[in-house]
Write a protein that binds this DNA or RNA. Sequence first.
RNA 1: UGUCCGAUGGUGUAACUGGCAACACAAAUGAUUCUGGAUCAUUAGAGUCUAGGUUCGACCCCUAGUCGGACAACCA
Length: 567
Amino acid sequence: MEEKANPEEEKNIRSLNFIEEIIEEDIRKGTNEGRVHTRFPPEPNGYLHIGHAKSICLNFGLAKKYNGKTNLRFDDTNPVKEDVEYVDSIMEDVKWLGFDWEDRLFFASDYFEELYAYAVILIRKGKAYVCDMTAEEISETRGTPTRPGKESPFRSRSVEENLDLFSRMRNSEFPDGTRVLRAKIDMGSPNMHMRDPVLYRILHAHHHRTGDQWCIYPMYDFAHGQSDSIERITHSICTLEFEVHRPLYEWFIREIGIYAPRQIEFARLNVTYTVMSKRKLLELVRDGNVTGWDDPRMPTICGLRRRGFTPESIRNFANTIGVAKRDNVIDVSLLEFCIREDLNKRANRIMAVLNPVKVILDNYPDDLVEEMESVNNPEDESKGKRKMPFSKTLFIERDDFMEDPPNKFFRLAPGREVRLKAAYIIRCESVVKDAETGEIEEIHCTYDPQTKSGMPESNRKVKGTLHWVSEKHAVKAEVRLYDRLFTNENPDDAEEGKTYKDYLNPDSLRIITAMVEPAVSLAAVLDKFQFERTGYFSVDKDSTPQHLVLNRVVPLRDSWSKGEKVK
RNA sequence: UGUCCGAUGGUGUAACUGGCAACACAAAUGAUUCUGGAUCAUUAGAGUCUAGGUUCGACCCCUAGUCGGACAACCA
């Protein structure tokens, strides 16, 4: 089997992360007959975000690398929080990211019957009991991290009584909250999770898949490891906060006597200038700070997609940040780098003027229209060329003109020359201002007919090249300029008396009307462009042929204005 | 006054498992460019939380601290 060197193999050359080391050692030792089987186990109670993307890329990536499989499993053990809406969006997002669970779509609720049987096994072994205390009582007797808990008075119930009570719990004989099934472990354990954790609670709630079939539902700890075991997962990869759950995970597997997967924890992703918790994301949506889960400012997968991110860029990001156990906060600039790198190669260039000011070429024939030719993507010959109409009156960027320019300003100014990209070199002769406001209304220029792009005489050097669009051919477009949602690098660590909401960026969205090259009107939703010299833009779902709407994915790097700001 | 986990340039991740701390992003400089983009070249920035110890040699092993995180939902 000879495979050409592909990116996947190059990764082998790179050093292994700690999970790959564990897996390779397992393979070496023949654990699980060298099998690698992972899973991505979201709870369908919200939308996926970039942190989940890290986990998805990790789980599917590992399986791919080691010739294994990955299941998609919904951890749907809490019917009051979950909904099919979320199931659907999660599947869409995972697929969009480019991963395929093939025929291995599972739900923890598929295993309710088996899980029930496991609970019965524990009861028979005297390792689980029905407890009649209230939630408050259970909480009070659990102790604190530094103080041991007290044993439940129901802890010594007979196996027969427990069996009877548990089956009656299932048979809907008791109201919500009156009884739970608990594991009998150790109320004095230094690990709070080992202090007789709750296995089942009574919940007369409609489940989005099992309907009203059940009125008792297993807790996360009782469902997750056993689900992994049922699916013969070899490496159960989760985030750090589950580290303290691992002894319990292993206790259940051992006491029930079933196949033992191995839980491995890694540090979850944090990104600067945003929040990642489902609770906070939900608040932003609910309180109207953003327009929805797919608001292009959200770190959700659907938000990033709508913003204009590509699956490749997100996968590449996930690969680049690596995986370890140390808490981390990734600089958004890395995410921005990843999308720029990708879009630079694939996005066609377009002339679009975001903040227009009129340029009139005094010596250009009034009714002449020329077709100027330009390459679609200088990084990719195969993208071909296009023609753009050029005429006497044009728009250029207001920022590209200064009456009284500083030293290193390479753009248009009185008496100065610049090139209009793919067209002529022009010289600014005079300016017309609004009598009252003093705002520049028209810039009068002359063009040099000898300098048309591509012509033999066109090689004269000028310091600046500007983008432009012909006034009478330009198409208006609503352009949404996004900035970071928060003004603080880490909105989560708010100072005294403040919350993350106090750091919301009031200017995270600016809507403008831009004048764009006519070719854009043919674009479909999610089509992406580089607006020459300004940034990458993606067609929003609100866009129609009559009313174009584009989102700025990310601006181009801009070493000029950066330097200006410092001054 | 508990248990578990962690600590390497500004941010992340490495360091052939004990042998000169490297790579990416960010930053700076120069070249080039009909995008102040991209590209190319170059530079700066940590001596690995602290104190001891083992060793010819420690980011790596040991001891004791320090700091940070997780854990007290009938959530996941």
